[in-house]
Design a protein around this nucleic acid. Structure first.
Length: 494
RNA sequence: GGCGCCAUCGUCUAGCGGUUAGGACGUCGCCCUCUCAAGGCGAAGAUCGUGGGUUCAAAUCCCACUGGCGCUACCA
C-alpha cells in the first residue's frame, strides 16, 4: 500500500433481501472517507450466493442509498474503469486467480461432501474440539485431484493456510492484530457451483479495483488474516483495513431484524427523512465533534465531509436508538418550510401512487367519501396494536395464537411479496397448524389492520408492503412476548 | 469451547495524566399554553466494569480478571 496510490474505497453489499441499515452506515463512512481525501467511492454488488440471491434486491440497494443521498462514483449501474461491478459477471477473473493459487500450491482441491463436513463438525463438537476443516484433502496429489475434477467429481478449492507461524495485520483504528495460523481455517475459496466465496472474490476485486482502504464492519476482523494470506499468495500489496463498530440492538447484540427495524425500505415508508437518518448514523460511533465542541448534534452530510474524523471513532458498538432517531427526525420535519412540509406529507404519506393503489381496494365497499379513512386508516398509521379481543379467534388460546403469529411472521418473511405466493404461504401455514384458513387470514388481518373487517387481505398486504407488514408483526410479537409464555425458565443453559 | 475485538450516566457520546467527569436522547418537574406537541428553565441519573500496579497526581498509561460482542458455513 504505497502512499502515492490514489484513495479508493468501496462498499460491497450482497443482494439478499431488503437494503440494510448497516449497509447505509458503511456507505456513509466510506463516502465521507472518499470525499475527505479526494478519493473515489465504489459500489460493488457481491452476488455470489445463488441460494440467497434476491433479484429485486440490487435495485432496492441503489434506490435506498440514493434516497439517503449516498451517491457512489462507480458501480454496476453507472460503470467505471474497473468494471464489471457485479461479482457474478466476474467469474473468469476468480477462476484465473484460483488457477494461480493452485499452481503455487497456496490452494488445493477438496472433495469432501457437505454431509461429510457436517459429520466431521459433529465429531469435533463431541470431542470439544474447535470446528475446523481437518485437511483431509490437503495431502492429495494435485495431478490426481485435477483428474478427479476433470472426470466430473464435485469439489471446492480451499486456501492452504500455512501450518505454522502467524499472520499480523494492522487495523488503522486498533493497531496490530495477530492470528496464530492454527486458528485459521482452510477456507473454501471456490464453491462447487463454481462461484467464489466472499473471501476470494473480495480480495481479487479489491485488488483489481485498486481499493486502497477497506472500510468495513468489525465482524470481518477474524477473517482478515485469510484475506492477508491471499494477498501475499498472489504477491499483492494488501490495502489498509479500517474495521468499524457494529450497530447493535438495544440488548447489545449485533443489529438484527428480529429485534429492530433494519430495512431502509421500512424507514422510508414509515416516513423518516433521509437527512435525519444520515445525521443519526453520523452520530453513532463518534467521529463528529460532540459535546462542548459541537454547536448541535444536527448536521448535514456536507458538514460531515468537513468535520468527521476517523481517528475519533469509538470502537464500542453503538446501540441503534430508535428514540433518538425519531427525535432527530422530528427536528428535521419541524425545520421544513410549511410548503416543504406539505410536500413531504403528500409524497411520504398521501402520494398519488400510494392512494392510487389503495382506492381500488375500497371503492366497492364505500358509501360516502367520508368513510375513506375509516376503511383505510391502517395504511397510514404508524403503529397498529390490536387488543386480544380483536385478534384472538374464538376457541383459541392466547398462547397458541401467539405461536401461530410467530409462524406467520416466519412464513411471510420467506414469501415473495405477491398475491399468489402470499396466499399459498398462508394456506400452508393454516394446514400445518391445523387452523382453518379463515382463522389464519383473520388473525393476520387483525394484526396488520387492527380490525376484523378490512379491504381484501392479500391486496392490502401488497400495498402496505413487506417492510411495514413484517414490522407490525414483530412489534406485535414483541409486545405480547411473555404474555402467554410458560413461566420463564431458570436460565438458558449454554 | 477456541480465537479475536471492545468496555464513561438506561442510550448516543465529550474527555488523551491534575475537570465540581461536559453535552445530547430518554425520564421527571416547572414555565409557556384552550389541549397535545414544540420551545424555555431545572432535576435526577456515571465511585468512569473490578482488582492490582506506574505516578506527587489516573476515567486517561500498564497488567490481570470480569463482562459484552463478533467470528468459528461450499452466507456475506
Amino acid at each position: 500500500m504505497s502512499d502515492s496510490q490514489p484513495i479508493r474505497v468501496r462498499i460491497a453489499p450482497s443482494p439478499t433481501g431488503d437494503p440494510h441499515v448497516g449497509t447505509a452506515y458503511m456507505a456513509l463512512l466510506n463516502l465521507i472517507f472518499a470525499r475527505q481525501r479526494g478519493g473515489r467511492f465504489v459500489l460493488r454488488i457481491e452476488d455470489t450466493d445463488r441460494a440467497r440471491f434476491v433479484a429485486s434486491s440490487e435495485q432496492m440497494i441503489f434506490d435506498a442509498l440514493r434516497w439517503l443521498g449516498l451517491e457512489w462514483d462507480e458501480g454496476p449501474d453507472k460503470g467505471g474503469p474497473f468494471g464489471p461491478y457485479r461479482q457474478s459477471e466476474r467469474t473468469p477473473l476468480y477462476l484465473e486467480a484460483v488457477a494461480k493459487l493452485l499452481a503455487s500450491r497456496n490452494a488445493y482441491r477438496c472433495f469432501c461432501t457437505p454431509e461429510r463436513l457436517e459429520e466431521m463438525r459433529k465429531q469435533q463438537a463431541a470431542a470439544k474440539l474447535p470446528p475446523r476443516y481437518n485437511r483431509a484433502c490437503r495431502g492429495l496429489d494435485p495431478a490426481e485431484a485435477e483428474q478427479r475434477q476433470a472426470a466430473g467429481e464435485a469439489c471446492t478449492i480451499r486456501l492452504a493456510v500455512p501450518v505454522e507461524g502467524s499472520t499480523t495485520f494492522r487495523d488503522e483504528l486498533r493497531d496490530a492484530i495477530t492470528f496464530d495460523h492454527n486458528n485459521v481455517d482452510d477456507q473454501v475459496l471456490l464453491k462447487s457451483d463454481g462461484f467464489p466465496t466472499y473471501h476470494l472474490a473480495n480480495v481479487v476485486d479489491d485488488h483489481l479495483m485498486g481499493i486502497s482502504d477497506v472500510i468495513r464492519a468489525e465482524e470481518w476482523i477474524s477473517s482478515t488474516p485469510k484475506h492477508v494470506l491471499l494477498y501475499h499468495a498472489f504477491g499483492w500489496q494488501p490495502p489498509r483495513f479500517w474495521h468499524m463498530p457494529l450497530l447493535r440492538n438495544s440488548d447489545k447484540s449485533k443489529i438484527s431484524k428480529r429485534k429492530n427495524p433494519v430495512s431502509l425500505i421500512y424507514y422510508r415508508q414509515a416516513g423518516y427523512m433521509p437527512a435525519a437518518m444520515v445525521n443519526f448514523l453520523g452520530l453513532l460511533g463518534g467521529g463528529m465533534p460532540q459535546g462542548e465542541d459541537a454547536a448541535s448534534e444536527k448536521f448535514s452530510l456536507d458538514e460531515m465531509f468537513a468535520r468527521f474524523q476517523f481517528e475519533q471513532i469509538r470502537l464500542g458498538g453503538p446501540v441503534f436508538d430508535l428514540e433518538k432517531l425519531r427525535w432527530l427526525n422530528g427536528l428535521y420535519l419541524r425545520a421544513l418550510a410549511p410548503a416543504e412540509f406539505l410536500h413531504a406529507v403528500r409524497e411520504g404519506v398521501f402520494s398519488d401512487e400510494y392512494l392510487g393503489r389503495i382506492a381500488p381496494l375500497v371503492q366497492e365497499r364505500i358509501e360516502t367519501l367520508g368513510q375513506f379513512l375509516d376503511l383505510t386508516d391502517f395504511f397510514f398509521l404508524d403503529q397498529v396494536l390490536p387488543p386480544d379481543s380483536v385478534f384472538l379467534p374464538k376457541k383459541r388460546t392466547l398462547e397458541e395464537t401467539l405461536a401461530v403469529a410467530a409462524d406467520l411472521l416466519t412464513a411471510l418473511e420467506a414469501s415473495a411479496w405477491e398475491h399468489a405466493p402470499l396466499e399459498a404461504a398462508l394456506r400452508a401455514l393454516a394446514a400445518a397448524k391445523q387452523w382453518s384458513a379463515k382463522e389464519v387470514f383473520m388473525l393476520l388481518r387483525a394484526l396488520i389492520t387492527g380490525k376484523t373487517a378490512s379491504p381484501p387481505l392479500l391486496e392490502s398486504l401488497e400495498v402496505l408492503g413487506r417492510a411495514r407488514t413484517l414490522d407490525r408483526l414483530r412489534r406485535f410479537l414483541d409486545h405480547y412476548k411473555g404474555a402467554a409464555a410458560p413461566p420463564a425458565k431458570a436460565k438458558a443453559t449454554s
